[in-house]
Amino acid sequence: MKRLPSLLAAFLLVLALPALARAQEKAPVVAAAADLQFALTEAADLFTQQTGKTVRLSFGSSGNFHRQIAEGGPYELYLSADETYVFDLAKAGLTLDEGKLYAVGRIVLIVPPGSPLKPDGSLKDLAAQLKNGTVAKFAIANPEHAPYGRAARSALKSAGLWSEIESKLILGENVSQAAQYATSGSAQGGIIAYSLALSPKVSALGRFDLIPADWHDPLRQRMALTKKAGATAKAFYEFLQSPPARGIFKRYGFVLPTE
């Protein structure tokens, strides 16, 4: 029992960890749509290199973040994949303003190796394979709260495949999880964000093809600072509108808004 005091001290130290972390100048938390998983991580690294400041990125579905911010979540910057969520928060007075359009997204059909599906963005092969019964599972993001899920649903409806495929869908919590499901090999394919498909990690796991942009409402992605934003979050917001950051977004297949 001689070790009791040091054990107790270690225990108290562990208890104090969150408080200690808070005492430091805390890096702002950024809520970002899951299609930005790779592009924004790269942009944030560049931001840190250039300014020495860091931000903390939390990825998820835009709809979930919208709900969390409405309920008082501690995010300082919100990058949504659907601008209506940002307008909604602006109307509720939770953001500083209506923010900025930063990118327009595209969707792709992605198929893992060994799938009977061809990576055909016109979805003609998907229609044929659905008739043959070779498609058992197909991944998209949850249309309820993920903009990329809604775009996937619109595209499948445009192609006239929705009623046939609905019972075969597996829904990702967000588009990043949908990409995980689609390329896992347990599904025959899925519809995910172009920006995810272009990342080295995902493109190694499947072949993909762009789906016509007019088959769904444009994925107008808007960002806004929340009322909780501090100096670092504001600097990052400015940085994301600068040429280096825009270059990264462009490389990940986003269509950039003109000034």
Partner: peptide, 17 residues
């Protein structure tokens, strides 16, 4: 908790993430 780094992102959630 959501999934907030440094605030509510525990190890179990980090694995999922």
């Amino acid at each position: 908790g959501g999934n907030i780094p440094g605030e509510t992102k525990t190890v179990a959630v980090a694995i999922y993430d």
